[in-house]
């Protein structure tokens, strides 16, 4: 899909037969209309909004003006939150990968011989989706609460100071992001590892490869498509997530992310230009990061 857009070397496609069928265009119409209506129009509207200035009558409404200052102001005020969002998203992606890889490997390779067990374990990975993630995040808020089982046990073991807490801290937010995105990481990894041909691993050990070098040189490269799609499916939504970091859930004032800033500007401060400008900045930064990541991972022929 979008991956091809980022692909590095232009692929030498077969020159397509030039005879364009008009029927094909008609068949494309619903898709194009959909994209225009639900992607292009909102995007144009967002760009226009981001350049608006307050109406001079002081009524709190906005009117069109080519006001670049919105970008400068909002990025200047909220640069910490922008940086923090990408840091948290990166941490959550790394942790999700560290947790998901062994899990996906186990399900996709180790229990291959028992298909029933394999399906059962897959269901366990997907099962959380049957409950709204808002509810699950709220449940974590209760579990991690100050008088909850985890904090009290940690305090009893002196692993946590008497005045410290977990909810409302960056730890809780990164934890929540990791928890919520593990299935998105696990499933693409599973699909690539499930197809992993064991004979490659056997060949590697026949050639005196240690388990570690077999893993690094054979298993990881073969599962790279899964790693790339898993990290993208985790990183992109995590960077824009505003639920985990919201104060209603796991976050606090010191851990708010760019999503929370956009929400506040849009719904509370009613500063639509700032919210739109920040949304566009978020979108562009993600596009740049993801674009260079995919290009560097060189997965154009793997996906």
């Amino acid at each position: 899909m979008a991956m091809t857009a980022f692909a590095g070397a232009p692929t030498q496609a077969e020159p397509a037969p030039r005879r364009q069928s008009k029927i094909a265009l008609v068949l494309l119409l619903p898709g194009i209309l959909y994209l225009v209506l639900f992607f292009i129009v909102p995007l144009v509207s967002l760009v226009i909004t981001s350049l608006e200035a307050p109406a001079p009558d002081g009524s709190g409404t906005f009117q069109y003006a080519f006001n670049w200052q919105n970008y400068v102001d909002s990025v200047g005020t909220y640069s910490t939150q922008i940086f923090r969002s990408f840091l948290y998203a990166l941490l959550a992606t790394v942790f999700a990968l560290l947790f998901s890889y062994p899990l996906a490997y186990f399900i996709g390779v180790k229990v291959r011989k028992w298909p029933l067990l394999q399906s059962f374990m897959l269901i366990l990975v997907i099962a959380p989706f049957f409950i709204s993630f808002l509810l699950r995040t709220l449940a974590w808020k209760t579990i991690l609460a100050d008088e909850g089982p985890i904090v009290t046990s940690l305090k009893a073991l002196s692993l946590l100071g008497p005045q410290t807490h977990i909810t409302g801290t960056p730890v809780a937010v990164v934890f929540g992001l990791t928890y919520n995105f593990i299935p998105f990481m696990c499933l693409p990894l599973y699909t690539t590892l499930e197809r992993l041909d064991i004979r490659y691993l056997e060949a590697s050990s026949d050639l005196y490869g240690t388990p570690a070098s077999t893993f690094w040189r054979v298993t990881i490269p073969l599962s790279l498509p899964g790693i790339v799609s898993g990290t993208l499916l985790t990183f992109i939504p995590a960077a824009g997530d505003y639920v985990n970091a919201s104060q209603e859930f796991l976050g606090g004032a010191s851990s708010s992310m760019i999503g929370n800033v956009i929400q506040s500007n849009f719904l509370v401060q009613l500063n639509y230009p700032a919210a739109a400008a920040l949304s566009i900045v978020l979108m562009l930064v993600i596009l740049i990061i993801v674009g260079s990541y995919v290009r560097r991972a060189g997965t154009d022929d793997l996906l």
């Binding site: 307050p54 002081g58 709190g60 005020t77 909220y78 910490t80 939150q81 104060q247 004032a253 010191s254 851990s255 708010s256 929370n260 800033v261 506040s264 500007n265 509370v268 401060q269 009613l270 500063n271």
Partner: peptide, 17 residues
Amino acid sequence: AENTRYNSAFEAVGLGA
């Protein structure tokens, strides 16, 4: 004008900015 200014200042504190 006050409302916009004060609200933004209040919200910014809550967002840690």
